[in-house]
Design a protein around this nucleic acid. Structure first.
Length: 267
DNA sequence: TTGATTGTTACCGG
DNA sequence: TCCGGTAACAATCA
């Protein structure tokens, strides 16, 4: 179940394991052989994440850029090597572990210039300590686009995916169709802080947990959510409305997240 | 076999 | 220029 938080989680774990080691890099299906050849035998200096983008920095200046997209996933296990499972595009092997990356939409080598362009392109990442929420608020504050679109727009702020958007807005009692410019600073801060807290928890538990005080489910899907793909609101038991924003399913409890009407102009 | 999916980008028209 | 819609791509599972 890859998503923003999983990527950060992977970055953090792999950071510990890959950094300071020369990696054996291969492309079991041959699709990224060129990238693998450029990296194999190179010393890994750093692994970091910007939003949902993962960067592996190597001593020779090459940067491996991975984005998992909708279907990609990363698996890490201890040696010994086993047969690649599914469509493994690239395999990173240290002296203790193997990391298989399946189905990324992006798997490429970047130069430092490319990296800077990437970082400039995306908004502040709620999970990074160097993130400046001001940048996100300034964009939201000027936009009449719905907040449900804006908080998931990685150019505005980075890290939130489709499940978290419905969950965060429900938790903060904000209707997803509220225009960005009607979100005041205090409300924005609540959204930002909640996103940060939920994504941090997600990284820690490696599952999307948005219900307070609950642990990952033991079932196949470990997620624990309030309204995403649910029929009834856990608070008021009312029906959850589902509709699309930016072509993605969104969930809202119209009772607990009323759409605040514009204040009529006074004459 | 079909449909759905925790994402992003390019492109086009208004 | 900005905004919204659509297609394309990716892999897996029920």
């Amino acid at each position: 179940m890859p998503e923003g938080h999983t990527i950060h989680r992977a970055a953090r774990d792999q950071h510990r394991i890959l950094v300071g080691q020369k990696l054996n890099v291969s492309s079991p299906q041959g699709r990224f052989s060129k990238e693998a050849n450029l990296l194999t035998g190179q010393l890994c200096l750093m692994v970091e994440a910007f939003g949902k983008h993962l960067l592996y920095r190597f001593k020779n200046g090459h940067v491996l850029h991975i984005h998992l997209g909708l279907f990609g996933r990363i698996r890490m296990r201890k040696l010994p090597l086993i047969e690649p499972r599914g469509a493994v595009r690239i395999r990173l092997v240290s002296n203790t572990h193997v990391i298989d990356i399946n189905g990324p939409t992006i798997c490429q080598i970047l130069t430092e210039t490319d990296v800077q362009r990437l970082i400039d392109r995306i908004g502040p990442d709620v999970l990074r300590s160097d993130a400046d929420p001001e940048l996100a608020f300034n964009k939201i504050n000027k936009s009449k686009a719905p907040i449900g679109r804006l908080i998931m727009d990685q150019h505005v702020m980075a890290g939130i995916g489709n499940i978290y958007r419905s969950e965060i807005l429900w938790r903060q009692a904000v209707h997803p169709e509220t225009p960005g410019k009607e979100i005041d600073r205090q409300t924005f801060d609540r959204i930002w802080d909640d996103a940060k807290a939920l994504l941090t928890l997600g990284v820690k538990r490696n599952a999307i947990i948005t219900v307070d005080g609950i642990h990952p489910s033991k079932s196949r899907y470990r997620e624990q959510v309030n309204i995403f793909a649910k029929n009834n609101c856990p608070t008021c038991r009312g029906a959850i409305r589902r509709f699309e924003i930016s072509g993605r399913k969104t969930f809202v409890c119209e009772t607990c997240q009323p759409l605040i009407k514009q204040i009529p102009r006074s004459k």
